[in-house]
Design a protein around this nucleic acid. Structure first.
Lengths: 218, 218
DNA sequence: GACTGTGAATAAGTTCACAGCT
DNA sequence: AGCTGTGAACTTATTCACAGTC
């Protein structure tokens, strides 16, 4: 089977969410045009994306929502479950714990750590919160591979060091600071403002369809 | 001056954050290679990006951090200030209010709304929290243009409707659901899990440099 | 030698145009 | 007619290869 383009994968998660919304409204079919207006992508884009997952639509009718959703989820779920641990259970960390991860692929948060003793010992959404000093042993015991940073920026580096020495293989950094880690450990910086800002930069002048642009004769 | 590529703009925010980190450590110069290992992008990528902002580096030495940061910020700051309002002051909403927006372009959150009376009347990070019913008048009074959705998914659509009828021109949606709004109002869906997931999908097999791939003779 | 800067080559992504199905 | 599916054209982004500079 062909490789699925990176950007298609990113959009797939939006499609899944959109289809869930339609299902909740009792809908059974949806066309690429409809999905387009709901997601803000173009209808061709959506058909091209869906193409990667095989032939699933019915001409004249559209896509069967349940079937399409299954196809998309299959992509996300095909690999083994990925275990992650969270560092920092403040507002952002708590929001992350409460996020519906179960609906998106097989990411599972197996433990959380926080330096503040007032927060440890509890559970949020079924995830236990441990003191930072337990990180090494808990990570080893659970076999977690990925660490999520959601501490204030002053503590970002400190926590990153703990993550590295506990043997985590990748880091997702939600804190607004840069982390330095040994090469070989990928760090994905996730900045709340980045996607947000593109709302404005996207609306640059020449967003017209190609047809409407002046033709240049060479 | 040439247009700056979309992806460069997105990366610029990461560069700014990285440079701030270096400055805090008392550093004055940095090379593309160093920035590469700190950000996870390639060194060529970084030079190409910086190229868009004019000639700013010094061969053999690297980039002057302060100067480069100014150049990058100039890009982000060149437009007028954008006023935004936030809907939903739960964990995620609070995290958004506490985010260092001031450091990223000219986005300013001028008010927040929450249906829960226990949360209204207070301020977080200098932003007042109003009941949902005040949305229309506060938005008109402040001249806000953009709305940020950070409510639980069940209330997403309800809040989106309020935003539309209050005359907001764009929506950034952090809630894990799809929103339906009239066409003409852009919705940017920001999904905490999307960027996160790319940590795994990025590491696909053929990520070797081109040189190391088998050569095909045609 | 150790950097930056950049045209050219390559790859990835998007849009067009239209075939095909029901 | 009204949809999906898809090769081809086009655009954008990344990487290579190397010239230029200190």
């Amino acid at each position: 089977m062909k490789r699925i383009p990176q950007r298609t994968i990113e959009r797939a998660l939006i499609y899944i969410r959109t289809l869930e919304g339609l299902l909740k409204d009792g809908r059974e079919k949806a066309s690429s045009g409809e999905l387009a207006s709901m997601t803000g992508f173009s209808d061709v884009q959506i058909r091209k994306d869906i193409q990667s997952f095989g032939r699933v639509g019915i001409p004249r009718v559209g896509y069967d929502i349940v079937r399409l959703k299954e196809k998309l989820e299959h992509l996300i779920l095909h690999e083994k479950e990925i275990k992650a641990v969270l560092f920092g259970v403040g507002n952002l960390g708590t929001a992350i714990l409460k996020y519906p991860w179960a609906r998106k692929g097989r990411i599972k948060i197996v433990a959380a750590f926080d330096p503040n003793p007032a927060r440890t010992g509890r559970q949020i959404n079924g995830v236990s919160i441990y003191p930072l000093s337990d990180a090494f042993s808990v990570i080893r015991k659970t076999g977690a591979e990925i660490g999520i940073v959601a501490v204030p920026e002053e503590r970002g580096q400190e926590v990153a060091d703990v993550m590295v020495s506990s043997g985590l293989k990748g880091i997702a950094n939600f804190a607004p600071c840069s982390l330095s880690v040994p090469r070989g450990i990928p760090v994905k910086n996730i900045d709340l403002s980045i996607e947000f800002m593109s709302l404005f930069f996207d609306s640059r002048p020449e967003k017209l369809p190609r047809k409407e642009r002046p033709v240049v004769i060479t």
